[in-house]
């Protein structure tokens, strides 16, 4: 791909803290390389702002290689921007043209309150994991990897669910702010493995109960989550989690 540079106009959500009322501010960036990542473009903008004595724009990021789930920008009306199956940090500026105006918003959901500018508090996801997204191993050494036979298809399906990085794009894209894709991926990846079987029912019940407590909406199977998921988690995990829940609710006294 041929290299080019571009000048862009950015409409970015600025918000001082959780309780303040935010608004859009317009920024201009010049000579942006088409080979930069979206976050590097923000670095350039922030350096410019710092040099001008202004406050930089706060945004979440960590690994910048698409696996940590920290970056979270809603770019031109789509979580993680226009590319399919890509996190914001892996979105490159060649997705844009010279003269483009780019609107950048934080994830919008009551369960994800804005901390500052484009940063949101995704602690709700941590609390859902704490409610049951684990297996209990109380004693002993690590078991040999091949001691428990696992069917290849199940291992693959479990792995595909475990690819969820918990970025929250599914919640951001859902018209109901539902966290079902995230929760269902976490329930499924353990339910599909023998190690996850002992706590299978309590896990489904507890994680889904915590999801409701955190104030996420309910799933109406629109499919927006699957369409924007940077890890391409399938919506069929939601159906699987529904079945896990129904079975657990009908057969356990919890």
């Amino acid at each position: 791909m041929e290299h080019y540079t571009m000048n862009l106009k950015l409409k970015v959500w600025k918000q001082k803290n959780t309780s303040s009322k935010g608004s859009f501010e317009t920024f201009e960036v010049k000579d942006i390389s088409s080979e930069m990542s979206f976050l590097e473009m923000f670095d350039v903008l922030n350096e410019k702002l710092i040099n001008e004595g202004k406050e930089p724009i706060a945004f979440d990021h960590d690994c910048r290689e698409g696996i940590c789930g920290m970056c979270s920008m809603y770019i031109n009306g789509r979580p993680h921007g226009p590319w399919h199956g890509t996190t914001t940090c892996q979105l490159h500026m060649r997705a844009f043209k010279d003269g483009d105006t780019i609107v950048v918003e934080p994830w919008r959901a009551n369960a994800f309150p804005v901390i500052k500018d484009l940063m949101v508090d995704r602690g709700a996801f941590d609390r859902i994991i704490q409610a049951g997204g684990y297996i209990s191993v109380n004693t002993g050494n690590a078991v040999d990897g091949n001691a428990i036979p696992i069917e290849k298809e199940k291992a693959d399906s479990s792995f595909a669910a475990a690819a969820c990085i918990g970025c929250g794009a599914c919640v951001a894209a859902c018209k109901n702010s539902s966290a079902m894709l995230f929760v269902s991926a976490k329930i499924s990846h353990l339910a599909l493995l023998p190690q996850g079987d002992p706590e299978r029912k309590t896990r489904a019940l507890n994680m889904l109960a915590q999801m409701d407590t955190e104030g996420f909406g309910s799933c109406t199977n629109t499919g927006a989550c699957e369409a924007v998921c940077p890890k391409e988690i399938s919506i069929s995990y939601i159906a699987r989690a529904n079945a896990e829940f129904t079975l657990a609710a009908l057969t356990s006294d919890k």
């Binding site: 009306g77 609107v103 918003e105 919008r108 959901a109 369960a111 909406g217 927006a224």
Partner: peptide, 15 residues
Amino acid sequence: KRAIGYAVKLGNRGS
């Protein structure tokens, strides 16, 4: 569940 909406909507790109 979403007190503040988006300025640019996802619309038909997702569902």
